[in-house]
Amino acid sequence: MTSTPMPAPAAATPTAPTSEAPADAGLRAGPLVTPPPATATAGPMIAIEAVSKWYGEFKVLTDCTTRVARGEVVVVCGPSGSGKSTLIKCVNALEPFQEGQITVDGTRVKDRGTNLPKLRARVGMVFQHFELFPHLSITDNLTIAQRKVLGRPGEDARKRGLDLLERVGLSAHAKKYPGQLSGGQQQRVAIARALAMNPVVMLFDEPTSALDPEMVGEVLDVMVGLARDGMTMMVVTHEMGFARKVADRVIFMDRGEIVEDATKEAFFGQPRSERAQQFLSKILAH
C-alpha cells in the first residue's frame, strides 16, 4: 500500500486578479487537510468521559472513557455488537447517550447550549455504506454542505471540492452520479466530502466493511495519506493492517465496554485482556 500522492501545492493558479488577499488562499495552496484553527488549542481533541448508553432496557455502552489527542490516529476494534459504531456516533451526537460527557475540541456534546449542527460541521464522518446523496452529482455532493452549512460562495466550494476530488484520484468523475461509481470510488468521494468541510477531526465508521475486497486498498490508501498529513482520526475498523501502519493507539471494545486502550505496539505485542487476545488471534489468523 502506498500513500496517495499529494497534488503539487505550488501550482495554485489565481482564478481572477484580486486586489485583496483571497480569504480562501489556504484552501488553494497548502495541504488540503489542514484543519482550521482549533477553538481550544490545549487539551485533547476528543474526550470521552464515563459514557453510558441504553436502548430501552439494553445497555449498549458501559462507562466508556478515552481520549484522542490532537493529530492522533486511534483505531477502535472489537467483535460485532460490541458498541464501537455506537460509541463513534456518540462523538458527533448522531446517537444520544444518557450518562457521561463527550467533549470535542473544547465543546461539550451533551449540553443544551451546544449548537450541534455547528459542532458536527467541524467533525468529518465517513459511513460504512458511503451515504453519498444519490440525486446529486459528485460535484454537488462535495459542495452542498459547504454552501448550505458553511455559507461558502459556490465558486470557492466548487474549487475546494474539485481539489479534494483530485486528491482522492477521482477528478474524471466530477460530473457523474454516485450510482455510476464503484463502492471504493464512492467511499473516496465520501471522504473528500467530509474533508471539504475543513473538519478538525475525522470519524470513520467501518469505512471498508461494505466494500469488495479489491476496493479496500484504494480507500485505505486515502486514509493512510490523511493520517500521515496529521489529521486527527478515530477509526472503527477491522483492518488490522491499517492499524499497524498508522494507528497511534488501539481501543478494543467488547459488550459495550472499553476493554483495552493501549498503544499500537502494546496492543499488537501483548494484549493484556484475554478477550482481546482471542479477538486478535481470530482476526489475524487469516
Binding site: K89, N92, L94, P117, K118, R120, A121, R122, V123, M125, F127, Q128, H129, E131, L132, F133, P134, H135, I144, A145, K148, V149, L150, R193, A194, M197
Partner: peptide
C-alpha cells in the same frame, strides 16, 4: 436508508436542511 439522514446531519445540516436537500428530493 437511515444513513442518508445521518449523513446529512453529520455534515452539519439542520433537520429542516436534511429534509430539504437530502430526504425529500429522494
Amino acid at each position: 436508508p437511515r444513513g442518508q439522514a445521518m449523513a446529512g446531519t453529520a455534515l452539519g445540516f439542520t433537520t429542516a436542511q436534511t429534509y430539504r436537500h437530502v430526504l425529500l428530493p429522494n
